[in-house]
Each structure stands twice: as C-alpha cells, then as structure tokens.
Amino acid sequence: MLLDLFVSVLVLLGAAFTLLGSIGLARLPDFFMRLHGPTKATTLGVGALVLASLLHVGGEAGTGGLRELAVALFLFITAPITAHLLSKAALAEERRSRSRSEIDEG
C-alpha cells in the first residue's frame, strides 16, 4: 500500500517534469534558452518514471532491476552530451548565417 503510494507520487512527478521540459521547449524565445528544459527536466522526469516502473514491476526476473537502472543511467550520461553537441551545432549554424548575410551586403 505504501509502495503503491510511493510509485504513484513518482509517476506524477516524472510525468510533470517531462511535461515541464516540453513546455520550456515550446515557449521560451531562443534556442539556447530552449535547451535548458529538455536537458534538465525531461531527463529527471523520465528517470523518475524508470524508477517508478522498477519499484512497481519489481525488475525483470534474474537481473534485479539492473536493466531499468541501465536505461536511467544511459539517459543521464547522454543528456549533457546531446546538449553540448546541439549547442555546438547551433553556434555553427549562427556563424554560417551571419557570414552569408555579410556576403549579401558586400
């Protein structure tokens, strides 16, 4: 019963943070600001959902829930790398569009 309550709270929190990440993505005004929502909120939100699933279903037989933890760990390791690469791409894109407009002026 207590476990059920705990899982419910985790599910609600996880879903709420997942939604918050996407709200940030949808409503903030420029790319680098939009990057913050998915990088932080979505990662923690989905991490909470993975933990909830692990607690509720009790993990796959014989693995003791290590595979669920592997999903969560993988998300936490890849999120900053994705953010880093995306911001590098955005900087390159910005530089490219600026140089194009300079050529147009000249």
Binding site: F32, T39, K40, A79, P80, A83, H84, L91
Partner: peptide
C-alpha cells in the same frame, strides 16, 4: 566538468 555543469542549476555548457 562540462557534463556536470549541464545537469546542475541554471547553466548548460556550450563549448
């Protein structure tokens, strides 16, 4: 350090 900065409050590392 860059990864930690990306996951902690207020900041995302860019380059």
């Amino acid at each position: 350090l860059g990864s930690i900065v990306s996951l902690t409050p207020g900041t995302v590392s860019v380059d």
